[in-house]
Design a protein around this nucleic acid. Sequence first.
DNA 1: CGTATCATTGAGCTTAGTCAAAAAGTGTGG
DNA 2: CCACACTTTTTGACTAAGCTCAATGATACG
Lengths: 232, 232
Amino acid sequence: MTTGSTPSNSTGQYRKLLTHQPHPLKSLDQLAVILPCHRGQEICCQGNPANHWYCVISGAARRCVIRLDGRRQIIDLFLPGDVFGFSASEEYDYTVEAVAEGTVVASYPRRRVEMLADADPLLGREIRQVAFLALARLQAQLLILGRITALEKVGSFILEIATRMSSERGNSVALPMSRYDIADYLAVSVETVSRSLTYLKQRGVIKFSGTRIVRIVDRDALEEGERPAHAA
Amino acid sequence: MTTGSTPSNSTGQYRKLLTHQPHPLKSLDQLAVILPCHRGQEICCQGNPANHWYCVISGAARRCVIRLDGRRQIIDLFLPGDVFGFSASEEYDYTVEAVAEGTVVASYPRRRVEMLADADPLLGREIRQVAFLALARLQAQLLILGRITALEKVGSFILEIATRMSSERGNSVALPMSRYDIADYLAVSVETVSRSLTYLKQRGVIKFSGTRIVRIVDRDALEEGERPAHAA
DNA sequence: CGTATCATTGAGCTTAGTCAAAAAGTGTGG
DNA sequence: CCACACTTTTTGACTAAGCTCAATGATACG
């Protein structure tokens, strides 16, 4: 749909991007429809039939739920290589939106993929593996939300992003989202996010080059009280 | 292992229980090894190879992680019919323990099941579906942890348990776990859990028949500010 | 260059965590 | 059946972390 206005030239470039990018559903590249997204654009919407699975090619996407009181909660964050769109029912029970302008997403027709998986056990395993990764992501997020202080939440968040965007060299991380998004992701207020970042900066734990580019100076300090005991 | 001391008679009874209980992996009943558990007994342990998948037959189990500071967090709660043991890596990255004395769990050898799934696409789909259910459970838990006040967390918790233990008749729910467990599950202190319950009792929202049996008097009050906007 | 969004900072207040202790169950062995 | 130990649950007083409201700076974008 969005691609309608895009010159085929450009679509071809996205196609190349998909081909060159390693991701978990490589074997389905030929089935993929490529979706370049604007900032905030809905990729799939709560209540709609869950007919597609998706994989982030570049950029970032957020999975959110809006509460009655108007508060938004971000349930999950998708970065390049992450697969999403799974649902236990026939409808999506969440909405996914592009976070950054120009986020590119590959979309796969669910039923066709499932039929392919019926014939190809290896593909079936791949899909399960991808679902297990989604489980691991949610588990990590639960651990972050379970932290006591906001400072720990923000610290873990930076480390998580740093790990998942490992393509970035060194200790510099480009935060893919605004402070507001981070707040809704960590279930704290924007002000608290900002204050925590300022505090970490003043203590010399992190440094900023631009508001959204963080350099981790003292990783141990960020990890403080963060690791589960077994990892010690 | 635990069954070693159990007379075969008793094992036979558990087997019957499994046969009569509807659950998602019915087709694997013949493969199942039945594990009756003591209160607090470990079912699978963080760091061990993830060689089994499990299904709760009766009772309840908790998935936990222990932090460096000694705090425990309960990541997930398994009730009868819930399948667990999935891992994205070759090892469990969490520990699962029986909550109630006499909890019964069916255990399935992972590799054999995966081989069966290779040959039987329907089984493959069932496993995916079960994994999607696990995703939905974690999403629900994230929504609860994202709530603002402790009162809302406790309210949502009661409603969640009431829904998942739908076998219980009427509006009475038997809480499967102690206040401490609830606290670690909701990431609040025990005292706060207790105070919230007392408050709900005094406001006439719930009634107790015994400390762990709750009757929901005013469901709407519990749901207050709880529903995502779309559900309105 | 102006406007809208995003980010930071401040002040006051509320909620929930901590520490402490009492009360109510639960189970065990005599 | 009771006494005792232990766990679970509740309640109280104090403290501190984070939310709200409010305002000011910074950035991006047309």
